[in-house]
């Protein structure tokens, strides 16, 4: 992947990570309030899909296509 694309991916990934952090905080702050918790969960699902389509691509590029096996048992 060329440098221009990689740079763009890095910027997108940074935003995805930021949204994830905010959505997790939102979920905690709204604990017990379904309207907040549920919508925060929906945002986190979108984050999951964005990671699938963007962050994983960057990770594989930055690891030189050699990604280490996971240590834990979660996806």
């Amino acid at each position: 992947m060329d440098q221009g694309n990689l740079e763009n991916l890095r910027k997108i990934k940074e935003k995805i990570d930021g949204i994830e952090t905010y959505a997790q905080q939102l979920r905690s702050l709204g604990e017990g309030v379904p309207a907040v918790e549920t919508n925060a969960r929906c945002i986190l699902t979108s984050v999951y899909l964005l990671k699938f389509g963007i962050s994983d691509i960057l990770d594989v590029n930055e690891a030189g296509t050699q990604i280490s096996p996971p240590k834990g048992g979660t996806l």
Binding site: V60, N61, T74
Partner: peptide, 28 residues
């Protein structure tokens, strides 16, 4: 998603294997 759809074969395989390991660990 052009990032996903134009990956090299090597990149595709690396992502598949990583995700396969993750999925297997999760499923087990």
């Amino acid at each position: 998603n052009p990032y996903v759809e134009t990956l090299s074969r090597k990149e595709i395989r690396a992502i598949q294997l990583k995700r396969f390991r993750d999925l297997l660990a999760y499923a087990k």
